[in-house]
Computed example of a mutant assay.
Amino acid sequence: MYHKEKSIQIKSSASALYNNLSVLPIAERSLTYFTVVHGNVVNMVSASGDGLNFSHRQLQSKEGNIPASSSLIIQAAWCVLPLRVLLVLTSQKGIQMYESDGSIMVYWHALDIPETPTAQAVFARGIAAARGKYICVGTSLGSVLVFDVPCKGSNITLSEVLEEHREPITDLASESSENEDCVAELVSADDSGLLCVWKAGEDFQLLNKIPAYGCSSVKLWCGVVVAGYGSGQIRLYDGMSGVVYAEVNAHARWIYALDVAPKTGTLLSGAEDSLVRIWKLNKSAENDTVEIEHKHTECVTDVQICGAKFCDGEGSAFAVTGYDLSEIIRYTLV
């Protein structure tokens, strides 16, 4: 079903972090950007459509005006807004926002560091764009920071802080809503497994809380919350009611990454068990059910998978990263 393509070499290996791969396809230029985090560095690669030409850039962790920092980067992800695309980096010190090609840092937000050291680490993790003008970022304190982003320039402001979680945020996911009814537009997950479902806007509204356990990765598709867990399970929930549509024992070990191709409802999961699995989600409006069907499995031998992302909205290609692996492995549909 999927065929392995030539891998992309990167300058340093992938750290063992949740969702340690971000992909940005740029169709009009026949390019695809990839980012992979290693320590205090983000490896950024642009690949041509034919897979023959590559360009490399490395971004380092920064603290305001300090050129480089030793603080670890936790995540890097592109946020696609209607009029601009920003590359967002989160670290132990703060949040950096760059223009999409990583050339210019347009915004820096410092995290609140306690004056007296505590046992709990301080970091930001979980990145998602929401409602066309907001970028949301989670923190180790359980807060979700909501930034209001203008269509151009660096006048980015912290507009709201969402305080429903009590444990470190593990992941955020969003989906644009086409109407003004209370439709799930953002979901946040934390270390305890709690999922909070939000409606985005000038004031974010909490729609629902879904308790669970050890959620590492989460996605939204057509109002359905897709959550991956440390148990290797994938659960599908109704975002508004919290009803469980389906539960699948998808992997033998911890799930590190999920992704959904929005145009087809194809789901991708990657885990510590060296397996990447492809699933098909089907939603029935008639009887209000969602089904999940297994379609394909790839085994990346002896690799602890830590990142897996589709390279387009249809799910016709995907890429994978693994802990201590200095390459991005690519697959295309045949």
Rank of each mutant, 00 (worst) to 15 (best):
S188W: 01
L194P: 00
P150H: 07
A110I: 02
G153H: 06
G126S: 10
A77R: 15
P168F: 10
S103K: 07
G193P: 08
D148Q: 13
V88N: 07
Y98G: 09
W78T: 08
I113Q: 15
K199W: 02
T90F: 12
L81N: 02
V106C: 14
S91E: 10
W108L: 10
V85W: 01
K199V: 03
G142A: 05
V85Q: 14
S103W: 00
R125K: 15
A189G: 10
L111W: 12
A128V: 05
Q75G: 06
S91D: 14
Q92Y: 13
D112A: 15
D101C: 01
H109P: 00
C151S: 14
D101V: 03
H165Q: 06
G193W: 08
L89K: 06
V80T: 13
T116K: 08
E164K: 05
A119K: 09
L145G: 03
D203F: 04
S103N: 03
I156A: 08
D190R: 01
S91V: 09
E202R: 11
R131L: 05
L186A: 07
E164S: 12
L162C: 03
P150Y: 09
E175P: 00
S177G: 06
E185H: 03
G102V: 01
S103A: 11
L111G: 13
I127E: 07
K133H: 12
R166S: 11
S192K: 05
Q96I: 03
G126D: 08
D181N: 08
D203C: 05
F123V: 12
G138Y: 04
I127L: 07
A76C: 15
D191L: 14
S177N: 05
G193A: 09
E163R: 13
K93V: 14
L141N: 06
Q92F: 13
E163T: 14
G142R: 04
S174N: 01
E185Q: 15
L186E: 06
I127V: 15
G142T: 04
V106K: 13
S140D: 09
L141E: 10
F204L: 05
G102S: 02
S177H: 00
L81E: 02
S159F: 01
V106T: 15
R131M: 09
V106D: 04
V197Y: 10
D112V: 13
A77Y: 04
L162R: 02
R84C: 07
R166V: 06
H109N: 06
Q75D: 10
A173C: 07
A110E: 15
C196N: 11
S91K: 09
M97K: 07
V88R: 07
T116F: 02
I113P: 00
I95G: 08
E160F: 02
S100V: 01
D203G: 00
L141Y: 09
V149K: 08
Q120C: 00
A124E: 10
I135G: 11
Q75P: 03
E167K: 12
I113H: 13
E185P: 03
S154M: 04
I95R: 04
L141W: 00
A189L: 08
Q96E: 15
D148A: 12
T170G: 08
C151I: 12
I95F: 06
S154T: 13
L87K: 08
L87W: 09
